[in-house]
Amino acid sequence: MSTVVAIGADAGSTTTKLVGISHDGVIVWETIEPTEPRMREQLERLLATIPGSGGSAGPTVPVVATGYGRNLVDTKHRRVTEITCHATGVYRSIRSSGTLIDIGGQDSKVIVIDAAGGVVNFAMNDKCAAGTGRFLEVVAARMRESVQDFAALALSSPEEVAISNTCTVFAESEMVSLLAQGHAIESISRGLHRALARRVASLARSAGAVAPLMMSGGGAHNVALRALLENELGAAIRLPAKPQLMGAYGAALLALRRAAA
């Protein structure tokens, strides 16, 4: 394995991701685990596990932290928002300007990237969980399905029930009513994914989205959401190889860039 020369730590609301990269910006080490309530301790523990990076004394290579818990890392490390980090990671992976849609556990972001990889504009959901990965987690759990299986159900349905709420609490209640009315789980699932896709598409339009479309974050793994977003925005979505790691990867690239400066 190549030596880790820079580290990116993405302490997200749902999962914590760490990426180590080599001199040429290639991911050579990665880890991902559910975010724990004690985020600071978790970050310290994970940073100590990076091969050849200093062990319990902490990393001896540059670190950039991002995500919800970015301010919990040691103050000697740099903190950068997930907006800049996702843009940096995806730009390096896909090597294209365009519009990045990042659907994370608690945030959805639309980031317009210019030809040099810089952030031109961005839009972000408000503090409620509507339009985020959490929305699908809650409704899938209510149906006793995994998020992936719930997405597969959506794609298997030729029919779609209109869901009027994207508020997680009200959508769950609306879903229960629809089940009681005898609607199929598949068509309800498709309607819920459609509601989320519409909300994110609206966010994208407000940010002035331009083609091509790209996606990162855990939400990028959701095939139904991806398909319906493409449908709503009328363009294909390109994916990096490891969408969920793009925040951490971008952070590592920024750490490498800073070390080289």
């Binding site: 950068v80 928002t81 907006i83 800049t84 945030d107 952030v119 031109v120 961005f122």
Partner: peptide, 10 residues
Amino acid sequence: ATRIEALLET
């Protein structure tokens, strides 16, 4: 806070 920081980063 994230939006403010991101604006300044841009």
